[in-house]
Each structure stands twice: as structure tokens, then as C-alpha cells.
Amino acid sequence: MSKKSTRQAYGEALVELGKINKNIVVLDADLSKSTKTDLFKKAFPERHINVGIAEGDLIGTAAGLVTCGRIAFASTFAMFAAGRAFEQIRNTVAYPKLNVKIAPTHAGISVGEDGGSHQSIEDIALMRAIPGMVVLSPCDAVETKKMVFAAAEYEGPVYLRLGRLDVETILDEEYNFQIGIANTLREGKDVSIVSTGLLTQEAMKAAEELAKENISVRVINVGTIKPLDGETILKAAKETKFIVTAEEHSVIGGLGSAVSEFLSEVYPTKVKKLGVYDKFGQSGKGAELLEKYDLTAAKLISIIKENL
């Protein structure tokens, strides 16, 4: 399988989008080479703004531009967007329901060597809590591109979570992404893995290995964490024995929490969570950190066997 980072796919998608929509503007906080918005800058220098190392200004300027009819994509690292600029996102973008797309890169512990201070494992929880905020998390380059176009068409605030690490491309170009709809990538009757981001690749690997032992695993890729696709989650809860959620994020407030909160009210079901358990990240190579924090197919297999 080919590999590409979701941040690279994001930069490429912005260029494609910019060619067909003259209202697209892209803003960055002095990290355009890392966020890959430099690709858009090269293609459309008059529609790219570097606000400098000032994340509050990044969001405030994006908000101002959309009041003039633009569609603004604002990018920096996830730690700085969801963390440092939280107040501006809440009060300047979400409160007035402005058409700003916050699209940070370098989310999760796979950021690697930048260490725990820069590895955002709380951003989904923060963005989920904001009223009216759509939260997207692509699993690969194909889904990223489709999310960028869907976000541009959606009227309102969107948080699009992107990563640094090159990840396997597992979806084909025929993949149909719609905001609010989860996609079942593999059918199964014993257990369901509900995954997002690069853990979807691990979910597919786990399902393939378990099939060799006659354990049937359903894999559901949740590209939209908010609004959650309750219909697909409920169907999985009713048709399989239990659910395992998988995400490169804290188990507090992320996908696992969203699934548990939903099912507890409509169809109480056993939910096991794979994610980061109340710890900070640390410096190391991205792939090695995923192993260290057990964000792997092997851990998914272990959880499923222990609970069947």
C-alpha cells in the first residue's frame, strides 16, 4: 500500500479546491511548510496569509474574512489550535456560527520527536464540547481530500484533525465521505471495532488476523466524530457482542467517550476503549510511540480475545 501523511493530502487538496473556488483563503501561523499550506501559498499567494506566531490572531483574522464572504481554512499545530486558540475558536468562530475551518496538523502522539508538550491528545475532547462544532478525523490521504471538499461545502465551523506521520492509504477514490456518516469497511458478527484516524489501519489489520481464527470482526471507520453516526453505531451494538473503540487520542472525551455516551442512553453495550490512558506523550519516533502506547493491531487483537 502507498503511504502519505494526511497533512500532505490536506495541502494538495487545498490547491485543487482553490482552483475551483475563488472564495477559499488559507491562513497559517508561521508553520506553512509543516502544515503543507505552503502548497496553496505557491499556487495562490494573494489568498494565503501568514499571521506569524499568533494563534489567536489566526482564528480572529479567519473569522473576519468569512464575514466578507470568504471560506477560511486556518492551520497550525493541533496543540496550538485547540489549546492556545481555544477561546477564539469558541467565542469568535463557534458562538456566531462562522464559516471557519480549523484544520490543524501534528495531532496525536505520532507527532514523535516534538514530545509531550506538542502531542495533542486532548483536542477532540475540547472541540467536541463546543456547541455546533463539527469534528472530523480522516484515516488516510483519500479521506482527507474528501473531507476538505466536504468542509468547504458545509456552512459553519469545522475542526479537521490531521497528522504528521505517513500512513497507509486504505481507501480507494470511490470512497464516499459524508459529514455525519460512518463507513463500515468490513462486515463482522462477533465484535465491532469503531475506529478513527490512523487506528483504522490497525483495526483492518486486526480484523484480518482474527479472521484466520474464525473470529468475525466488523470495522467501522468514523471520519465524523461529531455529529456521531448513531444509526451505524447502534446497528453494530445490536448485531455484534461488544464494541472496541480505537483512536490516537485520550480515552477521556474522544471517540470512545462519544460512543459510550450515546450507547448508554439508547442501548447499553459493553465498550472497550483503545487510546491513551491519562498520560502525556513523550519524545520518540512516531511509529515507536504508537507501539509504546499500545496503539496497535496486536493490542486490538488482545482486547478482543480477552473479552469474547
Rank of each mutant, 00 (worst) to 15 (best):
N176Q: 15
E46N: 06
A151G: 08
A13R: 09
Q178N: 14
G56K: 10
L295V: 03
A129Y: 08
A287T: 14
D38H: 09
T144D: 00
I233W: 12
A9Y: 10
F280S: 01
A237Q: 00
K97N: 15
I181V: 15
R161L: 04
S2L: 15
I225D: 05
E213T: 07
T269D: 09
N221I: 09
K292F: 15
Q201N: 13
L31G: 11
V148M: 07
T76M: 04
L27F: 10
G132C: 03
A74W: 12
V111H: 04
I304K: 01
E173C: 05
T224A: 13
Y277F: 14
K3A: 11
L274G: 05
K241R: 10
T61E: 03
P268T: 12
D229A: 14
G108A: 08
V100M: 09
T169H: 11
L255M: 11
G286Q: 12
V158G: 00
V135N: 08
K3E: 11
A85E: 12
K305R: 14
L136N: 10
E153V: 09
Q88I: 01
E122C: 02
V217Y: 01
G112T: 09
A141H: 02
I304E: 08
N91Q: 15
K189E: 10
R164I: 01
K3Q: 12
F44Y: 03
N21T: 14
T105H: 13
E213R: 06
Q8D: 12
V135F: 08
E122P: 00
T169Q: 15
L98K: 12
T35G: 03
S257R: 09
D114W: 02
L17Q: 08
K235C: 05
A129Q: 10
P227M: 12
T6K: 02
A72T: 06
A246I: 05
G60H: 08
P268C: 12
Q201R: 05
K205V: 14
I170S: 12
I215E: 05
T76C: 01
K299E: 15
T35W: 03
V191S: 08
A72F: 14
I102L: 04
E173A: 03
P96V: 08
K205E: 15
V142Q: 08
A203K: 02
V66K: 04
T196N: 15
L210W: 04
